[in-house]
Amino acid sequence: MDVTKVLAICLIAAALAVLLKQQRAEYALLISLAAGVIVLIYIISGVYSPLLSLKQRLDETGADYSFFTVALKALGIGYITSFIADSCRDCGESSLASKAELAGKFGIFILSVPLILDILETALLFL
């Protein structure tokens, strides 16, 4: 996960986007979207191996780690939602961006409902 490579890509894309902003505004958005996709794929490929080793270690312990999978899914949803919302905000569509973020929040909330129920049940046991 070479950070400098990511920074270089973002700088180049920003420069090209500004270059194209005067005549053709839509290409500025497309260039920033393309750069965002490349950077995100690069980051994800960097995160992949440590995450897999973490999962294997949790498997070995044999404990029920459903909380970990829910947290991972929430992370994925947040990851994608912030990417799309920022792209929308980039081209001036702040209302679309807030809609995307709202969808992401609801998605994460729906994911966490079973966990909340588990916590409630264990809490009720003590009462």
């Binding site: 794929i41 994925g76 994608i80």
Partner: peptide, 25 residues
Amino acid sequence: LVVVLLMIVNAISDLFVTVKNLFGL
């Protein structure tokens, strides 16, 4: 515009597939 959009749509679908695989969505 159509040509560039097609290229970007392919790239974004790759991104979504990798995110789905990694985070188990």
